[in-house]
Design a protein around this nucleic acid. Structure first.
Lengths: 231, 231
DNA sequence: TGTACATCAGTGAACGCGCGTTCACTGATGTAC
DNA sequence: TGTACATCAGTGAACGCGCGTTCACTGATGTAC
């Protein structure tokens, strides 16, 4: 018989979850740099110093939120792009749309990971892997499509990357274990930049008065980008 | 004989400029939401309440910084893209490179205008025109190129925008007084999103360990984008 | 099963800071006659 | 040119807040024998 978690362990896990929830709720109204541990403690009906039983410092709480956000987004994208009846193009479009939905639903979380870096906060190594998960999910349909084709067919609209860039593309693809030729990796990065850029503009109100709602704009951008990705 | 500005007016203008400078310097180490008027006053050797002789509130100071940033960036792009011996493609590439240089030189200013919105701060109308100036400068070379061509030649890789999107594109182009057909306007927005996205990723450390420096990557993205813009 | 001991969540006080904004005021600068 | 008055930059005190983090402590929960 496996001994389950003790009541204390259960309570601890619950409290950590609640702290994160309250922190996220707070982020809706403030930037990450202003996240207040005391405010969280107040809402938890706990003395402020008690927070330190759960997170050794404010930065550690922020790190946890960032890791969670990447993981949550990554998983969302993985599910949206799961292999199935749909072709790669459709799958990739679904991934991107899921990304936008996630960003619109949780704009503060999006800002936390893809927004302006937090002053005074230095991201630890722990955030690298979860961040990669998002990119991997983003490019999965492209990898699948290319795996089924002659690599040479790719990259008609892209010129061949120079030596420096080619090497950087190689290093990046390897780090993420992406099986993509240089030109395809470049196209994926370009697509990612466009999606992040469009979401950044939309979430920060740069489309106000022009593209509101931005659904049609987004679809058009994605449709074009999919073609350029060879999908 | 025209009466020049009084000593008082000169001093006032100088102080306003110094306050902005100190505010910008402070932004290098903090997010806009944490900008401290008291800290500025301290550095100016002035009592904290004296700041209110120059800016009625913290938000007004932030607004001034935002307007300045847009104007400064806009002017930089205008100069980089000035008509001359270079063809439109080269001009557009120069504009984009100037934008990157500006962003790398003044990352906090870039974050101020294109980064995550500032919690509690509501941008007044005054920021709209300067923001548009940047987009206009960004698309100027494209407009010039298209003015010299058959509009029909454009947009082979872009599908025709739907009704909603077409109307949004029209409204946006008109608001900025851009003489661009729908497909071209769409391509410009897409290009802008990509550039903003790439800069956002670079400035916030998402290229660390992969594309460092990102010069080659940026050039490749721009080169491809220029082709897609029909340049 | 019962007891002794270790673990650890939560307390409460304190340290040393910070902030935006208002208000009545002084005294220098600028202006109109 | 001289004087009276208005303007306005800067003062200093106050209001009513906020923060992260440390530390010695109490007392409940969990564990090993």
């Amino acid at each position: 018989m496996t001994k389950g978690p003790t009541p204390r362990q259960v309570a601890r896990a619950e409290n950590i979850a609640r702290i994160k929830e309250l922190a996220l709720a707070q982020l809706a109204g403030t930037s990450a740099g202003e996240l207040s541990l005391r405010a969280i403690a107040r809402e938890l009906n706990i003395v402020s110093s008690a927070i330190y039983r759960y997170f050794p410092s404010r930065d550690d709480l922020i790190t946890a939120l960032i890791v969670d956000a990447y993981d949550n987004l990554g998983q969302t994208l993985e599910e949206a792009g799961a292999r199935g009846r749909r072709g790669p193009r459709r799958r990739w479009l679904d991934v991107c749309r899921a990304m936008r939905e996630w960003a619109l639903a949780e704009p503060h979380r999006f800002a936390l990971v893809y927004g302006s870096s937090i002053p005074g906060y230095r991201a630890p190594r722990d955030t690298i892997a979860p961040a990669g998960r998002v990119v991997v999910a983003f490019s999965a349909p492209v990898c699948d499509e290319l795996g089924a084709r002659e690599p040479v067919a790719y990259g008609d609209s892209w010129s061949r990357p120079g030596r420096v860039l080619a090497s950087q593309l190689r290093v990046s693809a390897d780090a993420l274990e992406l099986d993509l030729p240089d030109a395809a990796m470049l196209a994926v990065v370009a697509a990612f930049a466009r999606v992040i850029g469009a979401l950044t503009l939309e979430l920060n109100g740069h489309f106000v008065g022009g593209f509101e709602p931005a659904d049609a704009l987004f679809d058009a951008l994605l449709d074009d980008e999919a073609t350029r990705l060879g999908l």
